[in-house]
Design a protein around this nucleic acid. Structure first.
Lengths: 202, 202
DNA sequence: TCTTTTTACTAAACCTGTTTAATTATTATA
DNA sequence: TATAATAATTAAACAGGTTTAGTAAAAAGA
C-alpha cells in the first residue's frame, strides 16, 4: 500500500471513529457533518469525499452494529424452540438494539428503507442475510413436516419480514410503545400468519 | 369571516395550488419551497407560516388524493368477490396511484411513515381509515363463517396492512418492479396469510 | 533528477429548509 | 376618530448537506 493510500485509510478511520462517537450520543439530525469533521480533524468536504453522503456514513456505522447483531442472534437461536419462537428471536433482538437509540435508528431506517436498493448496499446485504435466515428456518420446518411442503419459503420469509417491518413502523410512530409491547404484537401477528385465519378446508 | 381571514385563506389556497402543480410535475426534492412561493406569488417564509414544513405541505396535497382514492376504492369493492380479492382491491389501487408519480410518493412516504403519528395527522387518519376498511371485511367474513371466529380482526387487519407495506417497500426499492409484479407478490403473500403455512391441527 | 500527472484534501461557495426580526395593514378599544 | 393591539406577511439571516475550484504533496515518467 502506497504512502498515499495509507494516509487515506487513516483519514477514513478517523472520520468513522468520530462519526460513531457522535452518532451514539446524539440523533442523526443533531450530528452535523461539520461536527463530525471537526472531531475527526478534517474538513467537512473530506467527509463527503470519503463517504458519499451523511446517510451513507451513518449506514457504514450502523450496518456494522446491525450486521454483528444479526450474526450473533442468528447463531444463538434456541434450536429446540418452536417455529414461532425461532422466527421471533432475531426480530426481538432488533427491537432491543433499536431501542438503545431510538431516534438514531429511526432516522437511519427512514433514510434507507425507501431508497433504491442500489443506493444502500450495506442495508441490502443485511436484509438479504435476515431473509435467508428466515427462509432457512422455514425450509427446516418443512423437512420436519411442520410447514406444508408446497409453501415457497422465499415468499413466506418475505411475509414474516413484512410483519416485522409493519410492527417496526408502529414502534417508531408510537413513542409510548415499548420493546415488550411491539414484540408481543409481532408474535401475535406471526402466530396468525403461521396458522392462517380462515377455517381449514376452505 | 373577517377581511383578514379571507386574505389568509386566499394565500393558503394560492400556495396549495402552486404546490400541487409543481409536485405533480417534479419530485419532492426537485420542488423547492422557493419555487412554490414564486409560483404562488408569496414569500418563502409565508409557505412555512401557512404549512408547518415542506413535508406538511406535501402531506396536505397528497393526502387529499390518497384520501379520495381510499374512499372511491373502498366504495367500489366488488361485493361478490372472495375475501382475498376484496383485501387486495384497495392495495392494488394504491400501487397504481403511486405509480403515477413514483418518486413523489416515495419521497412522501419516506418523510411520513417513520415520523411520530402526531406529526403526520392526515397520513394517520388515512391509515386508520384503511385499517378500519380491512378489519370491516374480516369481521364480515367472520359472520359468513369464512374467517375463524376467535380471530382478532384488528390484529388481522394490521397484518394485512403490514404485508402491503412490505411489498410497497419492495416496490419503491426495486425500480424495475411494476404494479403488476408487486400486486402479484402481495396477492401471493396475503393468500398464504389467510390459509396459514403450517399443517392444520398443529 | 527534473517534469508531468495524479490524487487526497480543503476553503469557499452554493442551495435549500427554516427562523427571526421587522413591517404593514387590519381590528379592537378609548 | 385617534390610538393601541393584533396578526399576516416578508426580507434577511441562519444552518446544514453538498459542490466546485483549486492546492499541494505524492507517484509516475523522462
Amino acid at each position: 500500500m502506497s504512502r498515499r493510500e495509507i494516509a487515506k485509510q487513516e483519514t477514513r478511520r478517523l472520520i468513522l471513529a468520530a462519526a460513531r462517537e457522535l452518532f451514539t450520543q446524539r440523533s442523526m439530525e443533531e450530528s452535523t457533518i461539520r461536527d463530525i469533521a471537526r472531531k475527526a480533524g478534517v474538513s467537512p468536504a473530506s467527509v463527503v469525499v470519503h463517504f458519499k453522503s451523511k446517510t451513507a456514513l451513518l449506514e457504514e456505522v450502523l450496518c456494522e452494529d446491525i450486521g454483528r447483531a444479526v450474526s450473533e442472534l442468528a447463531a444463538s437461536v434456541p434450536q429446540n424452540a418452536g417455529l414461532l419462537d425461532r422466527l421471533m428471536y432475531v426480530s426481538k433482538g432488533f427491537f432491543s438494539l433499536y431501542d438503545q437509540n431510538r431516534n438514531l435508528y429511526r432516522g437511519f431506517i427512514r433514510h434507507t428503507v425507501f431508497e433504491p436498493a442500489s443506493e444502500t448496499p450495506l442495508m441490502s446485504r443485511i436484509t438479504e442475510q435476515y431473509l435467508r435466515f428466515l427462509s432457512g428456518i422455514i425450509e427446516e420446518e418443512k423437512t420436519r413436516g411442520v410447514v406444508r411442503p408446497e409453501v415457497d419459503s422465499t415468499i413466506a420469509a418475505a411475509s414474516v419480514f413484512s410483519l416485522y417491518m409493519g410492527t417496526l413502523i408502529t414502534f417508531f410512530r408510537e413513542p409510548e410503545m415499548t420493546v415488550e409491547t411491539v414484540a408481543d404484537l409481532l408474535t401475535c401477528m406471526t402466530d396468525y400468519y403461521l396458522r392462517g385465519i380462515i377455517r381449514s378446508g376452505q
